[in-house]
């Protein structure tokens, strides 16, 4: 395999006295779908937020193409972060804006596209995700599944290289869960972005992800392909997959 695109080396982070990440080592490669699984409250979201810069580590290094993020120049850092998209667990759609404004916001505020081009891109995106005809509605008027798709549309509209999914299927029924997974897979194949998915959906997630990492009690217990995961004799891993307490 090539060099890792993003690499966590011994990342530690605590909030007050509560130590969440206790030395995380993890590599993300370009163009793959990697799933980060683990119990609720073990800091999976915190890990994701490090990549996009919402949270900064207390110690350890976050390497982007081999260079620590902190050592990048302001411009390089910004350029890197512009290739990222983040899909929040609760969608984080803007209540006071209609669906069209929600999806077009990252383009309107950050790019110099003319208005008609933005419109074209947004409507193409909406069409691909089956959201046609709701551009004048507000998030509160949509069902949970629709909101998820709007959030996905907003994350994808900027043509990101890396998309970070924070529990994209939380609160969805099995059918929609599968749809979201297939959607992620389809778009990942189409656009070739790197997808990092934080999820609880075991074993469904194994169908679409190339690699899996298990985060438990602040450290990565396992990192590898799903074959390796199934062949692993680790007790923790097996019990987690089967949903037993460990």
């Amino acid at each position: 395999m090539t060099n890792p695109f993003i690499q966590f080396t011994d990342i530690k982070k605590s909030f007050g006295t509560n130590s969440v990440l206790k030395g995380v080592n993890l590599s993300l490669y370009r163009g793959e779908i990697i799933a980060i699984i683990g119990k609720s409250g073990t800091g999976k979201s915190v890990l994701l937020k490090h990549i996009i810069g919402l949270i900064e580590q207390d110690s350890g290094k976050l390497l982007i193409n081999g260079t620590p993020l902190k050592q990048l120049s302001f411009k390089d850092k910004r350029n890197f972060q512009k290739t990222l998209s983040y899909m929040f667990q609760d969608n984080a759609l803007f209540d006071f804006m209609n669906i069209y404004d929600n999806i077009s916001l990252p383009l309107v505020e950050n790019s110099n596209f003319p208005k008609d081009q933005i419109e074209k891109r947004v409507f193409t995106q909406m069409k691909q995700l089956g959201l046609t005809g709701i551009e004048n509605k507000f998030p509160a008027q949509l069902s949970g599944g629709m909101k998820k798709r709007v959030a996905l549309a907003r994350a994808l509209v900027t043509d990101p290289q890396i998309v970070l999914f924070d529990e994209p299927t939380a609160g969805l029924d099995p059918v929609r869960k599968k749809n979201v997974h297939l959607m992620i897979q389809e778009y990942q194949e189409k656009f070739g972005f790197t997808a990092v998915i934080v999820t609880h959906d075991i074993p469904e997630i194994f169908n679409i992800s190339q690699r899996i990492a298990l985060l438990d009690e602040g450290i990565i217990r396992f990192e590898g392909s799903k074959e390796e995961l199934f062949n692993s004799q680790s007790k923790i891993l097996n019990s987690f997959i089967k949903g037993e307490n460990f």
Partner: peptide, 12 residues
């Protein structure tokens, strides 16, 4: 509801 964080992730 993390909308402010969402703005940050969009570089707004």
């Amino acid at each position: 509801s993390e909308q402010i964080d969402a703005l940050k992730t969009m570089h707004i």
